[in-house]
Structure formats: C-alpha cells, structure tokens
Design a binder for these strands. Structure first.
Lengths: 130, 130
DNA sequence: ACCTAATTACGAAATATTTCGTAGAACTTC
DNA sequence: GAAGTTCTACGAAATATTTCGTAATTAGGT
C-alpha cells in the first residue's frame, strides 16, 4: 500500500488550505485566481472530487460548505518526495539533495540551516551500524 | 519558458536509456518488462511520441531503430526537482532537503557525503552577500 | 411574494496519458 | 520463394485529469 500523490490541480487547492486553514470554495477560488484564470465551478468540481477521494473533508452545516484537508502538508510532501526519489533519482537521497542545492540560488542562510540539521542527524546516529 | 517534465511512462524509458545508452524498442521493453507487464507496442508508441516531442532522437539507418535521449539525466532531474520545489515546498530548498533526509533511512555514508558537498558549497560562497 | 445573487450538483466536453490491436513492410529460414 | 518472425506505423480504445455550462436550491433584500 503506497500512498498516491495529489494531481497538480489538487495540490494547488491543498496549498491554499494548508496556508489559510479551512476555507470555502469561493475563498479557494479567489486565491487561485490571483495566479491564473480559473472558473468557480472548476474549483468547485476539483474540491468535490477531492472530497470523494478522501483528500478533503467538508462541513455542510451551513449552506456554504467549508473544506479542510485530511492529510498533513508534511506527509504529502514526503509522499511526493518519495515518488520523485524513486522515479527520477534511483532512490538516492544524496543525489537528490545535491541536485536541489547544486547550481541553485539557495541562500547561505539556508545552507547553514541544512548543515545544522545534518549535524543533528549524524549525532542521532551515533551507535548505528556504519 | 519553463521546461516540461516527462510523464511517468516517459521517465521509465529515459531511465533505461540513461543507464544502458542508446537502445532499441525491444531492449527497452525487455528492461521494463522486468518490472511490470507492458506490451511491446505500448513501449514503441511511447517512444514514438517522445521522439515527436523532441525527448528522443532515433537512428533509422537500420531497420531496427536505435533511440537515444536528447536531455541529460541531470537536467531532467533538475527540472523535476524545480517543479516539486515550487509546487509542494513553496520554493524552499531547505524544507525539501530536510524532508528528504528526515525520517528516512538515509545511510550514514550518504549523510557524510552530503555534508562534504555542503561544506564545498559554503566554501564557494565566501564573499557572497550574506 | 418576487427578484437577484450565491451556491451546490451533475453531466459532459476537452485535454492528456497509457494501452494495445491490426496492418503492412522488411528480414530470416528452410 | 513461401512461411514465419520482427519491426514500424497508425488508429483507436481506455483511463485520468481538467474545465466549464446548466439546472436546481437556498438566502437575502425590497
């Protein structure tokens, strides 16, 4: 049983929900409209499908339904990462990480942060099998 | 102009080509068949489409055509990384990296390798704006 | 009550992707 | 050179995703 990743349109909806918290279709559609042309019923339909799939849950107590995501952002990120890792990087996390940091305009602050994180990780492995 | 990412089926073909070098449809199909059921003409069609899209080039000098990728593996990895970065991580490479390394069973050897890489990166930024 | 605006439900078209069958050409073998 | 095998071309079905129009319902204002 491996989790499925949301489609592109679904992910856009999720991003708004994770950022703003539970929202109505209109609220989501207004956010998305700032980025691109998208009809109200298009957003509605996507969200209805997501609800049917179990990606969202909705509160129908008022006429205007309020939706919220059923998965945590970090879990979804992990699932999508794993997919990319296996499909494009042969499962090698180090290759992926180096690609992510390589030519990119990652800031020094970010690099420092990652290094700190890495030191922690290494620390926590004291005693592991090498 | 932002590059487009290959579809799942296309990526599977590319992975074989990057690993094995220029190959025939039969060779690709045999590799893919080790992983999953897939008909010969299915693989053929995918590769024909990829050629039409400019993802592959083929040598037709012999009856059995020989295909090779037109993009480097690393460029494709980067394009796919960027897409994931922007669609699921709000553009934050550090979040992505930490997600990749976090709960994962990344080996100590890999972590060491990444740290080395990171030190190089930081070294190369001496004199950058902080 | 009537009109208008907002909302949901639903079907279906449009697009993208994946799969495969069939036909015909090119090569092999006997 | 006939029969069988391997290959490409092509169309089309199957599936997945995205988009939107229309109809019905509800709420609010006048």
């Amino acid at each position: 049983m491996s989790k499925s990743t949301p489609t592109d349109a679904e992910l856009e909806v999720l991003n708004v929900l994770w950022a703003k918290g539970p929202s109505t279709v209109r609220e989501i559609n207004e956010m998305l409209s700032q980025e691109k042309e998208v009809g109200y019923t298009t957003t509605l339909k996507i969200m209805q499908i997501m609800t049917a799939k179990g990606l969202l849950e909705r509160d129908e107590s008022s006429r205007t339904h309020v939706y919220k995501p059923l998965m945590k952002e970090s879990d979804t990120q992990r699932t999508m990462m794993d997919k990319l890792l296996n499909s494009a990087f042969g499962g090698s996390a180090s290759k992926l990480v180096m690609q992510a940091l390589g030519n990119n305009k990652t800031t020094k602050a970010e690099l420092d942060e990652i290094r700190k994180f890495l030191d922690d990780q290494l620390e926590n492995r004291k005693g592991d099998r090498e």
